[in-house]
Design a binder for these strands. Structure first.
Length: 949
RNA sequence: GCCGCGGUGGCGGAACUGGUAUACGCACAGGACUUAAAAUCCUGGGCUCGUAAGAGAUUGAGGGUUCGAUUCCCUCCCGCGGCACCA
């Protein structure tokens, strides 16, 4: 076994002493910026998941250096934040101290893995040198109007004693402590992310990011396209704008619904004011969770004597206050269309509002489509679906002339309702008279088909009615009807799958079993005056235009709440003066230092209020007594710009050197966890876009390419957690197996982005591989190593490996790159065992291939081969395609697509020669004997497929 | 409910543009070395039948296109992630 401990210690010291990985900005080689999402240094130390991403970027960085690029590959610490503060409170130690201890431990662990970071560029977001510029960023946003203070309902976590951004609330609970979040009306600082909503969506299209992250961001921003339509209130000057995605359903509006927070509610002279106020008061005390997830039934109160006017048809409609309408979304007011929105339907049923169908779904019969040369006849029709619960069968008819299966169909006569028509037809066609009405299956459906029995095209506006058979009581059926149809009872299975002629049937089945009563799909308009007959799409814009509505979009995204009532963060650089108001701290006074002498325990009020020296200041403008903003910033503000700081981490004059930023950024590839999809990754994009608009940078996306490392699960396949006891400590693994084995194993586990379970037993495989490499070199060195490789097998294998590994590193397919190295070593070892002494060129090439993955052992082997300089900047090996080609190739011979034999032939054989060989083969003869060969397909160098009759 | 990703041996996984499915590794079995074990090296099967040669099945299920499908199309099932009273 190779001595990993000595080797790893030796080379880590070598890299450090030689400053091997210090990045020189002035080096004019082509630049590449390879970035890790920097860690939050927790007291628990490194998790095995951290090195997965770090190893990936390290392999890529080392590879690029050997390819001749100038590589920026830095590391730092996202050091402010709540967990550090909570840990410090628990231990009774200042967070400054605990954080520095955690950083030291993280640094030690990361360095023990031999990553090629430029440690001169290490950053710490909790240091004044860094957060001075976080404060500068805040002030820049403030100047641009992108940072503002507003009183608004905000998320408050009682347990953490602070407000939270929307992005930090998961299903109504706090991201950190999982306790429910409540709404509070507070004055807080926000960043105007919503201003960039459209850019944040459209920018995604050009990014090489995992599709899942892009989708998550799109969902989070939640753009809805629709229209804003204004409803006026009768006998008042009040106008209520309403946002809807379905302006086409305007003629189906039954009521106007207002959120309890709607400001117009105070302007009305309502008869039942007390009742309305009581309702508003009740809903105010509900949490968002109660109003959404937990609510079982829609509630609301009608505003007596108040009528809204439907702008489409001037109809007077009632106005309700209802808490299923959210004040924070759209305009806080909704037009209620019960027939086509499930929530409105439920509300309408409860409060007895009219349900008017205005959209009719259409269906074209695929087996009997309309014929162009035939007349069209329009009919109103009813379908009676009759179910016999005792025998679990459906009533159907078999039409004699065409032998088709159908439900009971009837035309609706003048002056007759659909229900009357259904009962009449049932009696006439089947004789059944004792049926129980269950429900009408939604509004009508329009079916287009060719009616064979009448030789005409039909447009049938069909209403479906669902009955249950109450008894077998029947009246006689006329002979005329008997001649037309047989009455059959059909099994449920046949009824739903057999070929019934009724193309409406899928709609009926869906409505019979679904809890969705409203039809929210597309179709053509009915009950909509001049728009009748137009499609929903056409009607959307036409109706919007008619009522002077505006095409608008609404977003789910809210502005980013950045204030925190906690201690361990960057102070917000604002001063409040009685005369001047809100005054930004002048840049020259930055940083606003976080005082170290405060009791930082959380009380719900910012701890900084308790520091008199911090809190009581003089106004920078008029010198009169003033107070400092006592909230700190969300830590995600610190991490939203860290990639910029790395280009000039020691610059005291600016956040980042603009010309350095221009030459290094945007980041070529960023690797990190998927959990930051709508947090860090969206905030960083926003900040970059804002900085671009301010002229500080020339690009509007920070990370061109993004890859997520998948989660490493415990050996039990579950997420690693202390409570489950399945956590793997990297220190122990590194100590036992060495950093190179650890790196190699994590990369060999599977594709970088996949979640995969840890398996300590499997590490042995990676270790065995390195031992095998070690002994390969030891054996080679026992002989006199020739400078040039002469063995064709060795040449072929090493050149194949160079080709494949190079391609795999480019696509970050490290698992297959490692398997290629294993194949190569196995092959080289075989040659060696057979008595061949490997050439220096072969050994050096392999060492280089190995070096990004297992850099310590590679450096040692490189030195053993007699090289004086380190391996890190030696040129990456090239491959020779002519050496890779196999002299003998294997051709699979298939008969009708099944492989029956294999032919080993020289690579330059022609198709004819191969065919001759194949047809001469005894195995092949056996299979094609007595059969006529239809055709022969030849795929060069792969297979020959003989197709027989 | 909507959107996205995925489902391949006992396990992690591989397979280019539709061309010999299961590379590589783990585990397992047999053998060599050893007094013995560990380590190492060699060999092997992978599901069913068969002593074997071999045959058949097989990439979540079912169907389709094709000479040929893990790969393309349709329907469905399961798992993971996101959004969700969002008008």
């Amino acid at each position: 076994m190779y001595p990993h401990k000595d080797i790893e210690k030796k080379w880590q010291e070598f890299w450090k002493n030689n400053q091997t990985f210090r990045t020189d900005d002035s080096d004019n080689k082509e630049k590449r910026y390879i970035l890790d999402m920097f860690p939050y240094p927790s007291a628990d130390g490194l998790h095995v998941g951290h090195p997965e991403g770090y190893t990936a970027t390290d392999i890529y960085s080392r590879y690029l250096r050997m390819k001749g690029y100038n590589v920026l590959h830095p590391m730092g610490w996202d050091a402010f934040g709540l967990p550090a503060e909570n840990f410090a409170i628990k231990k009774g130690i200042h967070p400054q101290e605990t954080t520095q201890a955690s950083i030291a431990n993280f640094r030690r662990q990361i360095q023990s893995l031999g990553f090629s970071y430029d440690w001169d560029r290490e950053i710490d977001t909790s240091s004044p040198e860094y957060y001075k510029w976080t404060q500068w960023l805040f002030l820049e946003l403030y100047k641009k109007g992108l940072a503002y203070k507003a009183k608004a309902p905000v998320n408050w976590c009682e347990h953490c004693q602070t407000v939270l951004a929307n992005e930090q609330v998961i299903n109504g609970t706090c991201e950190r402590c999982k306790n429910p979040v409540i709404q509070k009306l507070l004055e807080q600082w926000f960043f105007k992310v919503t201003e960039y909503a459209d850019e944040l969506i459209s920018g995604l299209d050009n990014l090489d990011w995992p599709e899942s992250i892009k989708t998550t961001q799109r969902n989070w921003i939640g753009k809805s396209d629709g229209a804003t339509i204004t409803f006026s209130i009768k006998n008042t000057s009040v106008e209520i704008p309403v946002f809807t995605t379905r302006p086409d359903t305007l003629f189906g509006v039954s009521a106007l619904m207002l959120a309890p927070e709607h400001p117009a509610l105070t302007e009305f002279n309502i008869k039942n004011r007390d009742e309305v106020n009581a309702y508003i008061e009740t809903s105010k005390h509900k949490t968002n969770l109660e109003r959404t997830f937990l609510s079982k039934e829609k509630t609301g109160v009608c505003l007596d004597d108040i009528k809204a006017i439907n702008p489409a048809n001037s109809q007077e409609i009632p106005v309700f206050v209802a808490d299923y309408v959210l004040g924070s979304y759209g305009t806080g007011a909704v037009m209620s269309v019960p027939a086509h929105d499930q929530r409105d339907w439920e509300f309408a049923k409860k409060y007895n509002l009219p349900i008017v169908d205005v959209v009719m779904p259409t269906v074209t019969d695929q087996t009997n489509p309309p014929r162009e040369d035939k007349q069209i006849k329009i009919r109103n029709v009813v379908h009676a679906i009759v179910y016999d619960p005792r025998n679990k069968k459906y009533l159907t008819l078999r039409g004699k002339p065409f032998n088709w299966n159908t439900v009971v169909i009837g035309g609706i006569e003048e002056g007759e309702t659909a229900l009357e028509a259904a009962l009449r037809e049932l009696k006439e066609e089947t004789g059944y008279i004792d049926v129980k009405y269950i429900k009408t299956l939604g509004g009508p459906i329009q079916a287009h088909f060719f009616a064979k029995h009448k030789d005409e095209n039909r447009i049938a506006n069909t209403t479906g009615i669902y009955f249950e058979l109450a008894s077998d009581e029947r009246v006689p059926v006329s002979e005329e009807e008997q001649a037309k149809n047989d009455v059959l009872w059909t099994d449920e299975k046949d009824f739903t799958t057999k070929e019934m002629v009724n193309s409406e049937l899928p709609f009926w089945l869906e409505r019979m079993h679904s809890t969705n009563d409203a039809y929210s799909g597309e179709g053509i308009l009915i009950n909509s005056e001049e728009f009748d007959g137009t499609t929903t799409k056409e009607a959307s814009s036409a109706i919007t235009q008619k009522v002077n509505g505006k095409i608008t979009s609404t977003y789910r995204l809210r502005d980013w709440l950045v204030s925190r009532q906690r201690y361990w963060g960057a102070p917000i650089p604002i001063i409040y003066c009685e005369t001047c108001g809100t005054v930004p701290v002048p840049e020259i006074d930055l940083p606003v230092l976080l005082p170290t002498d405060v009791d930082f325990r959380p009380t719900g009020e910012s701890p900084l209020v308790r520091s008199k020296t911090f809190h009581d200041v003089k106004c920078p403008q008029c010198d009169s007594p003033a107070r400092r903003e006592s909230d700190t910033m969300d830590t995600f503000v610190c991490s939203s710009w860290y990639y910029l700081r790395y280009v000039s981490p020691h610059n005291n004059d600016s956040a980042f050197d603009q010309s350095e930023a221009k030459s290094w950024l945007p980041v070529d590839i960023c690797v990190g966890g998927a959990e930051h999809a709508v947090l860090h990754l969206m905030y960083a994009r926003f900040i970059t876009k804002a900085l671009k608009d301010m002229g500080y940078v020339q690009f509007d996306e920070p990370f061109i390419k993004l890859r997520n490392q998948g989660m490493i699960l415990g050996e039990d396949g579950e997420k690693m957690s202390k409570s489950r006891g399945n956590v793997i400590n990297p220190d122990i693994i590194i100590n036992e197996y060495g950093a190179d084995t650890f790196r190699l194993y994590e990369m060999f586990m599977g594709p970088l982005g996949d979640a995969k379970p840890w398996n300590t037993q499997s590490i042995a495989g990676s270790q065995r591989f390195l031992d095998k490499v070690w002994s390969l070199y030891q054996t080679a060195l026992e002989s006199n190593i020739p400078e040039k490789e002469t063995n064709s097998e060795s040449l072929k294998n090493i050149h194949k490996a160079i080709k494949k590994i190079t391609a795999d590193i480019e696509t970050m397919s490290f698992n297959t790159a490692i398997s290629t190295m294993m194949i190569c070593v196995n092959a080289l070892q075989k040659e060696q065992t057979a008595g061949h002494t490997l050439g220096r060129d072969t050994l050096e090439s392999f060492t280089k291939l190995l070096s990004p993955f297992a850099p310590h052992i590679a450096e040692e082997l490189w030195e053993i081969l007699g090289n004086k300089e380190g391996i890190s900047f030696t040129p990456w090996p090239a491959f020779d395609e002519t050496l890779i080609r196999d002299e003998m190739i294997t051709i699979a011979v298939q008969i009708n697509g099944k492989t029956r034999t294999q032919l080993s032939v020289s690579h330059d054989l022609s198709e004819e020669e191969i065919q001759t060989l194949a047809f001469g083969d005894t195995n092949v003869k056996k299979w094609i004997e007595g059969r006529e060969t239809q055709k022969v397909i030849y795929i060069p160098a792969r297979l020959l497929n003989i197709v027989t009759k």
